[in-house]
Design a protein around this nucleic acid. Structure first.
Length: 812
DNA sequence: GGCGGTGGGCCCCTG
DNA sequence: GCCCACCGCC
């Protein structure tokens, strides 16, 4: 079946050859079903693996790579595997490592963005950047765009920074640049004209700052390959096997990048040896034509959930047309979930009309029923989840095997509040990123000001942080002086005496200049000298101390500044950790890692905690127990999606992704009322609930229950009724709960004021009263200090754990 | 130039 | 309900 002798590589750099049978990869095929085997063993120019959720996609990919290596069909350095998330890349690296050991190290297993950064760092000088370029995250680029919109008075034409940023991003994902856009724009429309001007200025500002934004990382790499074929050929020669995960989520720029990389080598390049990644590549005297790399893509159009950011589903649906002769392999057997979960998922997704029919199946049996629950408020919903997780935990389920999903990040707050109260260990994945915190961005701006002094944005950011009396007027004076004297903004700081500012301000500027120079000497010494690995951590500490940043936070009375200091300590710790893991790592390397790894927590795994995340973040992950929360109209499907073409079906796919993450237990929860924008509104059950056959869901409390009873108080005080209820009554949509009734009595909000019971003395046997749960008896007290936990048996609400410090309790 | 008060907009999802 | 832009005052 497998044609191992297919001449994949015509040319001098063919991989080492295997001698003869038995196949060294035989054990890699053990336990694979026939389509999986074919996906591992097929050899040819192009392979599309259509992999349903949980069909063993990662297994197939990693085994395919291992098989190439073990059969000596490829060197590790000839393999490029691309994923979308750092997490997926990390997992793939680990699993390939388990299969082939040490040799996994020469491979590129990277996200689109990190692969492009590696290429750009090497080639930046080819087109007017330096290797020290900065990566602007969306916050950075928004700040820059905001300034440009203001300069161009864009608001007079209805151009908001957010809209401009979105449009630029979209254009870059379609590989349009400012010039090409200007050529076809409708210039009689003044708004178009201003937008075009802003776009152009933005791109020039990036170039001047020696910076790329996230979209540029991809688009500029494509541009580089197209403009400099001899550079592209270096990578085409190097990567003979390219594998792309989640192909249904690629946008046009990413598609073009893959196309560039898999083109045949033209052979028109010069005969110099190039050094790529420390690997010298010598071209043969008479460069012969070299076939394009073999391409393997894996995807599932039912899991395409990124159309909103430019993902083009046609990339996968037209793969066979793009790559004639491509083999297609379908993986439909699911190894993850129970049949009940799959039946629900199949039922929901079959409501999308524009799809190829595909049905996941399993042979593990029906499993437990799906559990439904409707709370009175989002806090009631969260309390049910916390209680249920505790119950599972007591029955032996590890916290780390449980995940809670939601549609929007703002939904995490109610869950967090209840989880903290319940002393339930949890971890938010994604969400407000560590590196997006203001103090972290400030600290990084200090580092960037040293690493890439051309980055004016970074220098402007730290100019008056901490407050040193440098305001708008002075900032403008520095900018003007820089322009007049052909200096960078950073270098202008050295001439504080020539700015014509007051003595105090002048001294402040001089001091900042001195601190930056000192840190530069420490972290970027003159060539030849060796920097110790700890230079980054030391330089960061020096900058934060001598700039007065830490002192200002310490002197502050704002209680949040204490947390900011802790975050900065954490950043220094990350720098030290980085030095340990990368003894040769430079300041630039550190900044790259920080720019591409959005969350410091991505590095260390959330062992021992429940994982909270959006359904988008959940893609590619799996858990024994999954709670999909907020299953309400206007949330999933989201309100805004209704008006977008393809919006509702994308929402359905998103829900499908959430549901199919569950291995054994799936909970679907919702609330009858939900606070949004600070006010409480009535929520309707999601249409997706009605698409699931009623017999699959066991309602602990159905939307009907909540309505009919009207809520005679806290759910926790009511007996739970199993089954029945609303699930089956399709033509009888649940009536809205009246706004009056005792619904309002249920605690819909958590007191914003942080309570502090740390002094409360509690011991086993004591009786307490809780605001929501009523009276109960303490079984035990564990933990210490701020983390003391009371294990309480409430008279009517059952057993709960409470974080004593903040629990709304009183001793009786 | 810094600070505190106020009112509008907002919250969809990512590297 | 929270963040941020803006304004008026010191």
């Amino acid at each position: 079946m497998t044609d191992a002798s297919t001449p994949l590589i015509v040319g001098g750099d063919r991989g080492p050859q295997a001698d003869s049978a038995p196949r060294p990869d035989a054990d890699l095929l053990d336990g694979l079903n026939p389509p999986q085997r074919e996906a591992v063993t097929y050899r040819g120019p192009a392979l599309l693996i259509v992999a349903g959720a949980g069909s063993g996609k990662t297994r197939v990919l990693t085994h395919r790579i291992a098989s190439l290596l073990r059969n000596r069909e490829a060197w590790p350095s000839q393999i490029l595997a691309i994923t979308f998330t750092n997490k997926a890349a990390g997992e793939m690296r680990e699993r390939v490592g388990q299969l082939v050991g040490e040799s996994a190290r020469g491979m590129w297993i990277a996200t689109f963005h990190s692969a492009c950064v590696r290429i750009l760092r090497r080639e930046a000088q080819q087109f007017g950047f330096t290797t020290a370029f900065t990566i602007y995250d969306s916050g950075d680029s928004r700040a820059l765009i905001k300034r440009l919109v203001k300069e161009h008075e864009g608001d007079a034409y209805g151009l908001t920074p957010a809209a401009v940023q979105g449009k630029i991003s979209k254009l870059k994902n379609e590989l349009a640049d400012a010039e090409s856009y200007a050529r076809q724009a409708n210039m009689s429309d003044p708004a178009e004209r201003v937008f075009t001007a802003i776009f152009g200025d933005y791109q020039r500002a990036l170039q001047r700052a020696n910076a790329f934004d996230f979209d540029d990382l991809i688009a500029q790499t494509v541009y580089l390959f197209r403009a400099f074929p001899h550079v592209a050929d270096v990578y085409r020669r190097r990567f003979r096997h390219i594998l792309v995960d989640e192909y249904q989520d690629t946008n046009h720029a990413q598609y073009a990048l893959i196309h560039e990389l898999t083109r045949p080598v033209s052979g028109a390049s010069s005969a110099e040896p190039y050094s790529a990644g420390g690997m010298m590549i010598f071209e043969p005297e008479k460069a012969p034509e070299l076939e394009g790399a073999s391409l393997t893509v894996v995807g599932d159009s039912d899991q395409s959930i990124y159309a909103f950011r430019g993902a083009d589903i046609r990339n996968i649906s037209e793969f066979e047309r793009d790559f004639p002769g491509a083999r297609v392999v379908l993986l439909e057997q699911n190894y993850r979930s129970t049949q009940n979960i799959l039946s629900a998922a199949n039922a929901v997704i079959s409501n999308n009309f524009d799809r190829k029919d595909k049905k996941l199946w399993t042979d593990v049996g029906a499993g437990e029923p799906i559990v439904g629950f409707t709370g009175y408020s989002q806090h009631d919903e969260a309390q049910f989840i916390a209680d249920e997780i505790e119950k599972l935990h007591r029955a032996g389920v590890a916290y780390s095997d449980v995940a809670v999903f939601y549609r929007t990040n703002s939904q995490s707050r109610a869950l967090e509040e209840i989880f903290i109260r319940s002393a339930l260990p949890y971890k938010i994945m994604g969400g407000t990123k560590f590196y997006e915190r203001a103090e972290i961005k400030d600290a990084l701006a200090y580092l960037v000001s040293v690493a890439n002094p051309a980055d004016e944005m970074a220098v402007r950011r730290i100019l008056n942080k901490p407050k040193r009396g440098i305001g708008d007027v002075t900032e403008t004076a520095i900018a003007r002086f820089a322009e007049d004297n052909q200096l960078t903004f950073r270098d202008a700081l050295a001439s504080s005496d020539a700015l014509g500012v007051g003595p105090k301000v002048q001294a402040a500027i001089a001091h900042l200049d001195k601190v930056l120079a000192e840190a530069t000497a420490l972290m970027l010494p003159a060539s030849g000298e060796i920097t110790p690995p700890t230079a980054v951590a030391e330089g960061l500490t020096l900058l934060l101390q001598k700039s007065g940043y830490l002192d200002a936070l310490r002197a502050s009375r704002d209680p949040q500044d204490e947390a900011r200091l802790e975050n900065l300590d954490e950043l220094v710790a990350v720098a030290r950790e980085f030095a340990r893991n990368n003894p040769d790592g430079t300041l630039i390397d550190f900044l790259t890692e920080v720019a591409l790894v959005a969350d410091a927590g991505d590095l260390d795994d959330a062992s021992g905690s429940v994982s909270l995340m959006t359904m988008h973040t959940a893609k590619g992950l799996e858990f024994d127990t999954v709670f999909v929360t907020g299953v309400e109209e206007d949330l999933i499907p989201h309100r805004i999606s209704a008006g977008e073409p393809g919006g509702p079906s994308e929402e359905r796919r998103l829900f499908y992704v959430g549901v199919t993450r569950a291995r054994k237990r799936l909970y679907l929860t919702l609330a009858m009322t939900r606070a949004q924008f600070g006010e409480v509104s009535v929520a309707m059950p999601s249409r997706f609930l009605q698409e699931i056959p009623a017999e699959l869901i066991e309602w602990r409390q159905s939307p009907g229950d909540v309505n009919s009873r009207g809520g005679s108080g806290s759910r926790a005080l009511n007996a739970r009724r199993p089954g029945g209820g609303w699930g089956g009554r399709k033509d009888d949509p649940p009536a809205l709960a009246p706004r009056s009734t005792s619904l309002d009595r249920f605690p819909n909000k958590i007191p914003a004021k942080v309570r502090d019971n740390s002094e409360m003395q509690l011991a086993a046997g004591d009786r307490i009263r809780h605001e929501d749960f009523g009276e109960g008896r303490i079984d035990a007290v564990t933990g210490e200090g701020a983390k003391r936990i009371a294990h309480v048996r409430f008279d009517s609400a059952g057993a709960k754990k409470l974080l004593i410090k903040i629990a709304p309790i009183e001793k009786l």
